[in-house]
Design a protein around this nucleic acid. Sequence first.
DNA 1: GGTCGATTTGTGCGCGCTCACTTCCGGGAT
DNA 2: ATCCCGGAAGTGAGCGCGCACAAATCGACC
Lengths: 334, 334
Amino acid sequence: MRDVAHLAGVSHQTVSRVVNDHPSVRSETRARVLAAMRALDYQPNVAARTLATNRSQTVGLVTFDTTLFGPSFMVHAIERAAREAGYFVSIASARELNVPSVTEAIRRLREQAVEGIITLAPVAAAWTALGRSLLDVPAHVPIVGMGIDVHAMPEVPMVAVDNAAGAGLATRHLIALGHRTVHHVAGPPEWPEARERMAGWQAALEAAGLPVPRALPGDWSARSGYAAGRALAADPAVTAVFCGNDQMAIGVLRAMHEAGRAVPGAVSVVGFDDMPEAPYLQPPLTTVRQDFAELGRRSMHLLVTQIAAGVRQTGQHRSAPDLVVRESTSALAF
Amino acid sequence: MRDVAHLAGVSHQTVSRVVNDHPSVRSETRARVLAAMRALDYQPNVAARTLATNRSQTVGLVTFDTTLFGPSFMVHAIERAAREAGYFVSIASARELNVPSVTEAIRRLREQAVEGIITLAPVAAAWTALGRSLLDVPAHVPIVGMGIDVHAMPEVPMVAVDNAAGAGLATRHLIALGHRTVHHVAGPPEWPEARERMAGWQAALEAAGLPVPRALPGDWSARSGYAAGRALAADPAVTAVFCGNDQMAIGVLRAMHEAGRAVPGAVSVVGFDDMPEAPYLQPPLTTVRQDFAELGRRSMHLLVTQIAAGVRQTGQHRSAPDLVVRESTSALAF
DNA sequence: GGTCGATTTGTGCGCGCTCACTTCCGGGAT
DNA sequence: ATCCCGGAAGTGAGCGCGCACAAATCGACC
């Protein structure tokens, strides 16, 4: 910077003004400085700026399992949104789904002096289980919990798809097709998304006065969906299955096929997420679509607002999902 | 830090020594400092350290489309490897697949003073097309190009799966099953992976003295695989298809099914990647497995070596893929 | 021509840390 | 008793920048 100032024949402060688009610099001077910057291939030193301003222009992302379709897509959406908002993004993944791991990831991020944190990992359950919460992060650190459990931590701003509504959409769709009940392959209970989808499914069933079967446990993977699917396929009473995500639905589809139960002829299957492959599965999967890009933008927005305000705020945004009907569901054949 | 020093009754330098595990601190003193640090909830300021040492402890990741299975998995693998090596990771995604976007992403990373860069985006084609290369990044910035084209830029260290070998494995597997030739649904030619897989497929065919059909273009998506699949399904001469990745294979599987061509009865299909869902597709997909975790570790290793050496180095690592035979391939029925 | 106010530019300090160097202290060899 | 040496601790400078304030410059107006 000193060199640039020298070459342009101005003081370092003027260079600083040019770099930061300060208004009171004569355009002629500005041009001279810009030329000098270009000539010297000058690049501002972020560390120095961070030190001086106490602002890192970085937001942290706590992830857990980015091999899942949802989270991996969210990373992308958030990076985009962050860039547009003028922030860098630094990621820290939790090794496992427990308090120490998540705490450690957050610590790493805080150590980096991120200005705010967005968490994609399902922290609620683990944390509240120990009577702690994301609030252990000092209140001046803005945070947004994507898909966290708002009941467990109402103080933490949250952005999520309306999982219960989506599950309701899926379940009612199956009920409308004449199914006497709908079975459910659930995600891991540590994930609020999983619990909310299960609750939505259950509520829809109860509202229709239908029996609520026991949900089968899954871990979001196709493998677990397959295991659940085998159990379901063995029961001739099963005619409709709502899966907590598309990947598990893939497993269920496979299990049904192996058992000789046609989809949608004998059994209807619905997923959740609408991954890009969903239309090309066999059969094309009816599923609940979430708008990940929108969620990413929303969460960055919420974070930026907090950073600007300088304090943690509360606020929740739930985006409405859509049901995408394809060929894995059909009316119950009598 | 000053406060900690004060509380512990030592100088700031001693605190610094404790923080950095410097050996020459009496264990008694060290204990006192540690206690003070804990009491004050002291957290070192990375910006200040970075400014003083000129080392940011951060590596940058240039991504492009993390909704693809491979890249999304790699992000995860690299984050893990980086953490183990004591680095933070900051990500920057290229908006599009062209020189300005990738340059911009790299600029953002450099602006952040990352110590090294790993690129997951397929930069080679675009860059060399303009007679430029990753080397535009000053030579003192360590870089690793995952899956870049080594012919185009032999100077840049590279880590990748041996795509040609994998394609050969897949193709020879189909040839051994008696197929008279193997068709290919290729990824976008901008991706060296796509070109290498195509080259491997072609070479295997030629080595067996079989005709080389025209490859069908795809963009890695199931949608594009489906489009290619429809064309392939319409041609009764097609009995074996090798797809550039699993997602396109999903599309091909769907197209074959719609056209009433049984897989593997009438047509055999092979993918590439071995995504977690592959065993649960219909039919379970024969595919080429790559070890992403290993690739992530390798690339971090290569990067760390360069950082330690202080100069860009050359070096290439190709990991050998495996063929995983499942049920989407079978012997040609006469 | 002088004065005032607005605009533009410069000065010096400090952000929190590490580095190079100095100082201090105690123990063993001479 | 002297000297030296090595481990343990302290001192001060400076990394590159932005902030608060001071200084200079420029116009416009009386």
